[in-house]
């Protein structure tokens, strides 16, 4: 047992003593029993043993349909896109499905680590898609559509065939084929409990507090590259103007650099740019596309309404959610700016 574990165990005992006294207290009138319906509504976690997995199924075909309307805009047609998030699929092989280790993770020259290269547990994917996807409308997929989207992803990852239907009955068989299912280890000292038997694991580095002549010389192995000096803007403007030091001037002052459009700043602050870009389709259409569509029409008032109340079907299947928190005046500023072609300055 390490010194730390002993200390922690001792601290645990002491706390047990004090908290036991507290536990004798009760708190009448505080909290109430949860109803079964309430627990069911929120208890949506699915564990590696598939505890909590709802009954249901979804085919690769159905998954492709859902994917194209709700997932493709961020993740790409084949879940390979690197433009918004890191790629989900790629880098695994049929051999990996046999060994349960993604071989490319051993290579230092492999450019990308996709979700399927890393994830060991298929339950993780079901759980996460259900609770957090689509990114701009989490928890809106039916349980069956979560199965379908996962089936489509498993097919893209070449784990299941294109006529596959994933269900609660066969998901364990899929687990047995996951390419990196044996790729995790808990043999480390960074878990703050004994759950994985890690109390036996000592920290993996063992520096000593040497005070003098600790090494022949300071071996410098890396310096800040020249191009990185100003990659974070003008450092002079990121330091206080009084005190023992000043920031180095590495670019123009912030006031000069950031004289952008106030409407653009409002769009950023209001979260619009999570789904819209000025000049490229993201989740929603680009602002320049919107400006082109409504050019020459008197549409500003109607668009303010769409912005506030939400809209559906104009630009495809992904609905624009209602922006209820946006003040009327701000909505008008945004619409006028979009219709003017969303200028940056």
């Amino acid at each position: 047992m390490s010194r730390f574990s002993k200390a922690a165990a001792l601290a645990g005992l002491l706390c047990l003593g004090t908290v036991a006294a507290v536990a004798a207290e009760s708190f009448p009138g505080v909290g109430r029993p949860a109803t079964p319906a309430e627990v069911k509504a929120w208890d949506i976690d699915v564990g590696p043993d598939f505890a909590g997995l709802p009954k249901g199924s979804g085919s690769v075909d159905r998954g492709q349909t859902v994917w194209e309307s709700k997932c493709e805009s961020c993740h790409g047609t084949f879940a390979e896109s690197n433009s918004v998030f890191t790629p989900l699929v790629g880098g695994t092989t049929a051999e990996d499905m046999k060994t349960g280790h993604t071989a490319n993770l051993r290579r230092t020259d492999f450019p990308q680590r996709t979700t399927f290269m890393k994830v060991a547990t298929v339950s993780t994917l079901y759980d996460y898609i259900r609770r957090a996807m689509p990114w701009n409308a989490p928890k809106t997929l039916s349980d069956d559509d979560v199965y379908a989207v996962l089936a489509y992803l498993l097919n893209l990852a070449e784990i299941v065939p294109s006529d596959f239907t994933l269900s609660d009955a066969n998901i364990a068989e899929v687990q047995a084929m996951m390419p990196n299912r044996n790729g995790m280890t808990t043999a480390h000292a960074l878990w703050p409990g004994p759950g994985f038997g890690t109390e036996a694991n000592k920290p993996d580095t063992g520096n000593t507090p040497c005070m003098s002549n600790c090494k022949p010389k300071a071996e410098q192995v890396s310096i800040l590259p020249d191009y990185a000096w100003n990659a974070h803007g003008n450092l002079a403007g990121q330091n206080r103007a009084v005190g023992p030091v000043r920031g180095m001037k590495t670019g123009p002052d912030e006031a000069e650099a950031e004289a952008g459009s106030p409407a653009l700043a409002l769009a950023e602050k209001s979260g619009c740019l999570a789904c819209h870009a000025l000049n490229a389709k993201l989740v929603g259409p680009s602002y320049r596309e919107v400006a082109a569509r409504y050019a020459g029409k008197d549409s500003a008032t109607a668009l303010v309404g769409k912005l506030k109340d939400g809209s559906e079907g104009v630009w495809g299947d992904i609905p624009m959610p209602a922006q209820t928190e946006l003040a009327d005046g701000d909505a008008r500023v945004l619409v006028d700016w979009i219709l003017a072609g969303a200028p940056e300055k």
């Binding site: 976690d45 993770l105 680590r113 890393k118 995790m184 480390h188 960074l190």
Partner: peptide, 30 residues
Amino acid sequence: DKPYATKDEAVHYIDLMPDGQHRQYTSIQE
């Protein structure tokens, strides 16, 4: 009574080691 292998402990927040294995459930800030 079992760990959950959530997205942020099965896809992210896992530590890639030189042998290609990922350390999972790394939590303590040393």
